[in-house]
Design a binder for these strands. Structure first.
Length: 387
DNA sequence: TCTGGGGTCCTAGGACCC
DNA sequence: TCTGGGGTCCTAGGACCC
């Protein structure tokens, strides 16, 4: 593959920053976004603080001021409240975030059209054509131009990494947050990337990282120089090869401008665990509701699905799934409910339940001919057929 | 007071077909 | 009666990401 210039653009503390546009009086103070419902603030206060929260929500975004207390996204709000009780708390307003998401992506596309969506607050951009032979000086100019466009369109700041591929850019954009621009060329990898923790690689999660640490591998450089056979022994052939490639900054993935959804799901965690028998009515109501919401989503996206899945989490946090593929793709809430109901019969119901979810996969466009054997032309008998 | 909700991708075994 | 080597689809679980 010829040399490329790939950018990763990451919005800074996105949800919280959108809220600060609405509530500028909170700027400069610790703030987290999380939970489903708005918590009534105590008398004389305009906003609730973490200490006012009860429930099972987690932090979706923390401002840099809040992060200074050791709280971070994914942390339970109750736990965060112990670390930073005075931190302001606002519920997530996804509709608003999606609006701002569209706005910043539009602004980027006016400058560089080859954009890959990576969720609500980040994108990859292929800048190879735009930068051409003009080199890293030009890359920095384009990065500044993108930041300006995003700020003018939304009032929000973002960080950028530009490198020869997606893997390195994802790492790079993190290195100078918020508001940073980080450029890394192939020849800078040993100096800039190797000292970083292996966990910084997108695709090395908590489990893989713990295993690496147990092998004495902490940094990306240590991973790059690790014995290949050792990695294969502990991670399998495929993942070991990927680990080695990643550590050397090798990544050929292209920036994908279009993608089709593979599955659509809805799930909910209850305020209190529900008993499969005593709370049967409520569970059934919630179950039906989830099916209706999934059906709505399918309709909105103009797709049908053939594989219906059920997800259930017990009070001990153990999660089970069951799925069932039906004859013909459907978008009908009743059909989904029936199939999911059959899945439910295959699951043990001997503990309290914490979460219930419904998923529809194997998606297709209505009317699209699904490739299947029945539509294949009959073939000539072959010498190689069994008798 | 532990641990949300929406996704993708991979693995592995079994059924079934050629 | 025994022996293969693909391939695809289905299902369950798990790692990981935003």
């Amino acid at each position: 593959m010829p040399d490329r210039y790939i950018a990763h653009l990451d919005m800074d503390a996105f949800y919280a920053s959108v809220e600060l546009l609405r509530y500028p009086q909170l700027r400069g103070q610790p703030l987290v976004i999380g939970g489903r419902r708005r918590i009534a603030p105590p008398a004389g206060q305009a906003f609730a603080r973490l200490r006012d929260y009860t429930g099972r929500g987690v932090i979706t975004t923390a401002t840099y001021e809040a992060r200074a207390y050791g709280v971070h996204s994914g942390m339970g709000l109750m736990k965060a409240a112990k670390l930073a009780p005075d931190t302001w708390l606002l519920p997530a307003d996804f509709e608003q975030y999606r609006r701002y998401s569209r706005m910043f992506k539009e602004a980027v596309r006016t400058i560089a059209p080859l954009v890959e969506d990576r969720g609500i607050d980040e994108i990859y951009i292929d800048l190879t054509e735009l930068i051409g032979d003009d080199g890293w000086g030009r890359a920095r100019e384009v990065a500044l131009q993108l930041q300006t466009a995003v700020r003018e369109a939304t009032g929000l700041s973002c960080s950028l990494g530009i490198t020869p591929n997606k893997l390195l850019s994802k790492i790079a954009s993190e290195l100078d947050k918020p508001g940073g621009i980080t450029l890394i060329a192939q020849e800078d990898i040993e100096e800039r990337i190797w000292p970083l923790a292996a966990r910084k690689i997108n695709g090395i999660g908590p489990k893989a990282n713990a295993k690496l640490q147990a092998l004495g591998i902490n940094t990306i450089g240590e991973l790059a120089t690790a014995d290949a056979a050792l990695l294969v022994k502990h991670f399998g052939k495929n993942y070991a090869a990927w680990l080695a490639d990643a550590a050397h900054g090798r990544d050929e993935r292209v920036v994908k401008i279009h993608s089709e959804p593979k599955s659509i799901s809805r799930e909910t965690t209850f305020e209190d665990d529900l008993h499969p028998v005593r709370d049967r009515e409520r569970l059934s109501q919630i179950f039906t509701d989830l099916c209706m919401r999934v059906a709505d989503d399918l309709k909105r996206k103009g797709v049908l699905g053939k594989t219906i899945g059920l997800k259930l989490r017990y009070d001990n946090f153990k999660t089970v799934t069951r799925d069932r593929t039906i004859e013909a793709p459907t978008g009908d809430a009743k059909v989904i409910r029936r199939a999911a109901g059959e899945c439910l019969k295959r699951v043990p119901l001997d503990r309290r339940i914490r979460l219930l979810g419904v998923r529809v996969g194997a998606l297709s466009k209505p009317g699209a001919v699904v490739a299947q054997k029945a539509t294949m032309p009959p073939r000539e008998p072959s010498l190689f057929d069994d008798a």
